[in-house]
Design a protein around this nucleic acid. Structure first.
Length: 134
DNA sequence: CACGGAAGCT
DNA sequence: AGCTTCCGTG
């Protein structure tokens, strides 16, 4: 049994208009939570389907996202609207019928958002698998 | 819950 | 552009 881990280099975070400060994107944040053991009870990869994840505690994910963005009024209604904007961008899609379950379009994601990935061979997203025991 | 239009913010 | 806020619809 294995778990998927994801790591981003610094330049993956888009620079905000003001130089110096960097604004994290929601899908980065989601992947960040997914890679950490401590949030496994809040959000986790769905076994079987590659790239599919379940938000086990929507209120908590919204609270964490709100804390990161300094938006204390954040809730799942608003967060899920942001996730829905990812459908047309081909970053995510919904797993129909499964509550709080979404799926990353990893292949499209890298091509669309990081076209240089294949050119300079600098890995945008480093994915690697570790034994669950670690 | 899940969807998507519309307007607002930075 | 990438959300945030609000809300009507199914």
């Amino acid at each position: 049994e294995e778990i998927l881990c994801v790591a981003f280099p610094d330049w993956a975070y888009k620079a905000e208009s003001s130089p110096g400060s960097r604004q994290i994107q929601l899908w980065h944040f989601i992947l960040e939570l997914l890679q950490k053991e401590e949030f496994r009870h809040v959000i986790a990869w769905q076994q079987g389907e590659y790239g599919e994840f379940v938000i086990k505690d929507p209120d908590e994910v919204a609270r964490l996202w709100g804390r990161r963005k300094c938006k204390p009024q954040m809730n799942y209604d608003k967060l899920s609207r942001a996730l829905r904007y990812y459908y047309n961008k081909r970053i995510l899609h919904k797993t129909k019928g499964k509550r709080f379950t979404y799926k990353f379009n990893f292949s499209k994601l890298i091509i669309v958002n990081y076209p240089l990935w294949g050119v300079n061979y600098t890995p945008m997203i480093q994915m690697y698998e570790l034994p669950r025991s670690l």
